[in-house]
């Protein structure tokens, strides 16, 4: 469902991505690990064109993102994204954060949007926080609202960019629990994370990125047990 061919991204002379080829199947959960600066986040951001690739081709659900004729807003509706720093809209309540895009982009009526929002808040365990503002929520709660917000557009794929890195340790679990539920429901997910427990439990495939390339890939259990590439061995020994 996602095809990436020869993807490159340069920032000036800096080659952040140096040729990525990847095929992600429907319902697959792909976990990306790697040291900082390896290009994981940039790769993820290319998948919904928050970064414009320098070269290569990305196809999602048959639509070629890298084609200038493609309406990128339509593609983005189908690709949800969750950010490290949540990026909730601080001037809107939790419910309004969720309903804004369905109302403006999909032109849902207020009633429908509110029903959808309440339903999603319940799904992430925050039914009672509908009218709270982001500043009144804990980090873990904010990130769960952010996940609900992305789900409101009924995406076919969800991208997670280090969703728990900015959280206090005691809040990581509640966010991972929501992500696990999503994975079990069959959502196609691409997750950049350092949470190896999550990778082992729900990851179908683990990618190790370094210096803008995919160094190694395989099933999480296999890679944790005997990483082949020395870089992967070094990296895993540091974080496991």
């Amino acid at each position: 469902m996602i095809h990436v061919r020869g993807l490159e991204k340069h920032f000036g002379d800096l080659k952040v991505l140096q040729g990525i080829d990847l095929h992600i199947r429907q319902k697959e959960v792909v976990v990306i690990i790697g040291p900082s600066g390896s290009g994981k986040s940039t790769f993820l951001r290319c998948l919904n064109m928050l970064e414009e690739p320098t070269a290569g081709e990305i196809t999602i659900d048959g639509q070629i993102l890298t084609d200038r004729a493609t309406n990128i807003n339509h593609v983005r509706e189908k690709v949800g994204m969750v950010f490290q720093l949540f990026n909730l809209f601080p001037h809107l309540t939790a419910l309004q954060n969720i309903t804004l895009a369905p109302r403006t982009v999909k032109r849902l009526r207020e009633k429908e949007a509110t029903d959808l929002g309440q339903q999603l808040l319940a799904k992430v365990g925050l039914a009672d926080k509908a009218h709270s503002y982001p500043s009144q929520l804990s980090g873990g709660q904010q990130q769960r609202v952010a996940i609900a917000r992305a789900l409101a557009m009924q995406p076919r794929v969800m991208l997670f960019d280090e969703p728990t890195s900015a959280l206090d340790p005691e809040m990581i679990g509640e966010v991972l629990a929501v992500m696990k539920d999503l994975a079990y429901e069959g959502m196609t997910m691409v997750v950049v994370t350092h949470e190896m427990g999550f990778a082992r439990e729900v990851g179908d495939r683990l990618l190790m990125m370094d210096e803008g390339r995919i160094m190694e890939e395989g099933s999480p259990s296999e890679m944790f047990a005997n990483p082949k590439h020395p870089r992967t061995q070094a990296f895993l020994s540091r974080i496991l």
Binding site: N48, L50, N73, H74, R76, E77, V79, G80, M81, F83, L85, N87, L88, F89, L100, A101, T104, V105, A146, R149, A150, A152, M153
Partner: peptide
């Protein structure tokens, strides 16, 4: 306004104009 606000809006499928107007 933090860059993440525009990025979050765009990632939801909102146009530049909608993101400006509502976020």
């Amino acid at each position: 306004i933090e860059r993440g606000q525009m990025e979050a809006s765009r990632s939801l499928g909102m146009s530049y104009a909608q993101a400006m107007r509502y976020v």
